[in-house]
Structure formats: structure tokens, C-alpha cells
């Protein structure tokens, strides 16, 4: 190959199509290429590096539909200067994009099995593409279950979509909140409390889990109690990332580079380190 190699460190111009607020601190933005019509094929669970001109760059998982890659969708929480600046962008504003990077969810590998998706808070965003993909090929799977926990009812993401999913006969959706007001008549408690009675066959189940690390640890415990094999549990991990290409060293988790070998890992591959603090 003599063509100029692609430089993974240089962002490409993309532009905002739409931004909307999901909750008080979370927003979703749809992007399209600013360099002519261009699709960005991605796998469910992969992420992009988004750059706001003059502010900085952050890794954000893709929350859109992998079967419709002409529009790239990101859902994120406003937690720092870059995500705040992202939130302030308006339709047709430009931003820089590098990606997609990383290894995603084993959606294809899970064919033939039940699939249980366990999401905590913003952890639903990187799992949504997997759900889209499962539903697009629904016949290949046994039961598909979504267990989703948030802090309060006001923090529930993708509310309308959840309602649509809830009304489908081929999808089980259970939502729980840590704290509720009077008008909430759903489940209260952490997401792990939904696992014991969720309808799936533990001996033929692939679990996809994303949320805070502590939530993922307890989720794995509950799944294991039900009899789900550790080799069938997948987690999406988070670490500091700068380059996303395996050069900068920031995202190391033991021998793994989260950006390159993850962010999705098979649990039994990371199990020994999950028990160690400050790895």
C-alpha cells in the first residue's frame, strides 16, 4: 500500500444536525459529515473522539443505530468543559470527529442465545446500538431483556423509546430507580434487584452490562448467582483516553488498552483485575 496512511490522530469535520436534552444533565446529538455525504459504519459499543473547536476532545460512545450509519448519534452527560461546550453547539455547527474506535458488543456472537442487557444510568447509551441491532435481527435470538436502573425517574433516558420497547411482545423491559417521588409506580431499588426474577435462561444467555464500575461488579455477582457463565458476561469499561489509538497509554487496565482491546471486555478476561483497587 503506497497511499498516504490514514492518520488516526487528526479529526475530520462533522456537523451537528440536531441536539436535544434527554434529562437535566444529559443530551443527545445527531451528527452528519461536513466533508460531503459520508457514512461512518460502526459496531454497537464503539466510541468516537469528539472535538469542540478551541475547547478540547472527549471520548463518547455511539448511541445511534448501527444499521443506519449515515447519521451518527451520541448521548452524553455534561460533566466537564468539553461536554458542556458540546451541549451548547447548535444545528449546522461544526465539530471534529475521530473514530470509530474499539471493540463492541458481541451482538452477532450472541445469536441463538437469550440476551440480557443491564444498564446503569448513562450506561444505557452505549447499549442502545446493541438493542437496535438485536431488534433488527430479532428472530436470531431467544428472549431479549433490558434491565435499566437510574437515580430518579427524572433521569430516565430515551423515555419514549423505552415506552415503545416496553409495549413490544418480543422484548422485556424493566426499569428501576434508586429514589422515587409519589407519582412513580415502577420499581424502586438498584438495578441488580431486577436480575433474580428477569426472564432468561441463565445457561443460554449472553449478558451485556454497562454502568458505573461498582454497579457492574454487583451485576456480575447477581448474574453469576443465576448461573450465567462468566464467559458469557460482557462489560464496557471506562478509563482516561487521549489518543484512542493505543499510543498514549492512558487507558491501560492491566494488560489491556481500553481504547483498542475494549471498551467491551468479556468478564472472565478482566475478572482478576476487577477485584483490585486502583488498577
Amino acid at each position: 500500500m503506497s497511499a498516504t496512511p490514514i492518520n488516526p490522530l487528526v479529526p475530520e469535520p462533522w456537523k451537528v444536525q440536531r441536539v436535544h436534552r434527554d434529562t437535566a444533565d444529559t443530551f443527545t446529538m445527531e451528527l452528519e459529515s461536513a466533508g460531503g455525504k459520508r457514512e461512518l459504519p460502526f459496531a454497537a459499543g464503539q466510541f468516537n473522539m469528539l472535538y469542540v473547536y478551541g475547547v478540547g476532545e472527549v471520548p463518547i460512545s455511539i448511541s445511534g443505530n448501527p444499521t443506519k450509519p449515515s447519521s451518527i448519534v451520541h448521548t452524553t452527560r455534561e460533566v466537564g468543559p468539553v461536554t458542556s461546550a458540546l451541549r451548547k453547539l447548535k444545528p449546522s455547527d461544526h465539530l471534529g470527529l475521530r473514530g470509530p474506535f474499539g471493540v463492541g458488543w458481541p451482538v452477532v456472537e450472541a445469536r441463538g442465545a437469550d440476551v440480557v442487557i443491564v444498564a446503569g444510568g448513562i450506561g444505557l447509551a452505549p447499549l442502545r446500538p446493541a438493542l437496535y441491532q438485536l431488534l433488527a435481527a430479532r428472530n436470531y435470538y431467544g428472549k431479549v431483556v433490558l434491565l435499566y436502573g437510574t437515580r430518579t425517574p427524572a433521569d430516565i433516558l430515551f423515555r419514549k423509546e423505552l415506552q415503545n420497547w416496553h409495549s413490544r411482545f418480543d422484548l422485556e423491559v424493566h426499569v428501576t430507580v434508586d429514589r422515587a417521588m409519589g407519582n412513580w409506580n415502577g420499581n424502586v431499588g438498584v438495578v441488580t434487584t431486577l436480575i433474580p426474577r428477569a426472564p432468561f435462561d441463565p445457561h443460554s444467555t449472553v449478558a451485556m452490562v454497562c454502568g458505573p464500575e461498582v454497579m457492574m461488579r454487583f451485576t456480575v455477582q447477581e448474574l453469576e448467582k443465576r448461573g450465567v457463565g462468566l464467559e458469557n458476561i460482557y462489560l464496557s469499561m471506562e478509563r482516561n483516553m487521549k489518543c484512542a489509538a493505543g499510543f498514549c497509554g492512558h487507558c491501560q487496565f492491566g494488560p489491556a488498552f481500553i481504547c483498542r482491546d475494549g471498551p467491551v471486555f468479556r468478564y472472565d478476561h478482566v475478572q482478576p483485575l476487577m477485584a483490585v483497587r486502583e488498577v
Partner: peptide
């Protein structure tokens, strides 16, 4: 080999660059 990046701009915001 570890590096970080620094995004900088001029005061007028006309120019930005990334340094590793």
C-alpha cells in the same frame, strides 16, 4: 511512550492547535 495532548487557541479564537 505515554503522552497527553494539549489543545490551545490564540486569544482571538482564529487559530487552534493540538500538541502532544
Amino acid at each position: 511512550f505515554c503522552t497527553t495532548v494539549e489543545d490551545v487557541t490564540d486569544l482571538g479564537g482564529e487559530h487552534a492547535e493540538r500538541r502532544q
